[in-house]
Design a protein around this nucleic acid. Structure first.
Length: 207
DNA sequence: CTCCCGATAT
DNA sequence: ATATCAGGAG
């Protein structure tokens, strides 16, 4: 099924807009519980106003909140981004760290965000991105019975070849958005229907 | 397990 | 007006 997904979504990657790894980090934090499209509406002006990590350090918190208003939880995210910028300037000389271990220490950054930044910003396959789509599809496709993103990631790392770790989750994300939706999945047009344990059940459930 | 708490589609 | 979208911290 990896091959089928790759064939259907040949260039699967993040849809977030960015020019530097730091911008990707900020964009990914903003994308928590927020669609990529909404984030992409915010970031051009944001990155024009704040060009370097140090610009975020100097930022007035209210002005920063206003600049990212539109992203869900912008209050918390503004504080996290400012704090994170301080850490990057003070502890990392303005360059964001390139390991999961270091990234998840930053405020507002857990494994999902760290994996997006490492894989999409640096081409590093330290782990597998597990967002709500990957979580749902992994369960439906029978790839993991685990409940937490951390456990699901571990399960996927065992069954997905490492050279696919970067692209594979993004094929699931695209498929999850377009076909294998949370509500009313389009099983009748799904290319994975014949080998999906969930598909057979849902075909009987959908009116 | 609770809080955070906007945008877009229907 | 309501449903759907879709992570992290305490």
């Amino acid at each position: 099924m990896i091959q089928l997904l790759e064939k259907k979504y040949p260039s699967a990657k993040t849809e977030l807009m960015f020019n530097t790894p730091f911008q990707l980090l900020v964009a990914t934090i903003l994308s928590a519980q927020t669609t990529d499209r909404t984030v992409n509406k915010i970031t051009p002006a944001l990155f024009e106003r704040y060009k370097t990590p140090y610009d975020f350090v100097k930022a007035d918190i209210e002005e920063l909140k206003n600049a990212i208003r539109g992203a869900n939880y912008y209050n918390t995210k503004a504080k996290n981004i400012k704090k994170l910028a301080e850490i990057i300037v003070e502890r990392y000389s303005g360059q964001i760290p390139e390991t999961t271990e270091e990234l998840v220490k930053l405020p507002g950054v857990a494994r999902k965000t760290a994996n997006v930044v490492l894989s999409q910003g640096f081409g590093k396959a330290e782990g597998i991105v597990v967002d709500t789509h990957v979580k749902r599809l992994a369960e439906r496709l029978g790839m993991s019975k685990a409940k937490t993103p951390e456990k699901i990631e571990q399960d996927l790392m065992k069954i997905i070849p490492r050279e696919k770790w970067i692209s594979f989750p993004f094929t699931l994300i695209l498929h999850g958005r377009r076909v294998c939706k949370a509500k009313n999945p389009l099983c009748d047009i799904c290319i994975l229907n014949s080998l999906c344990p969930y598909g057979d059940k849902s075909k009987c459930q959908i009116s």
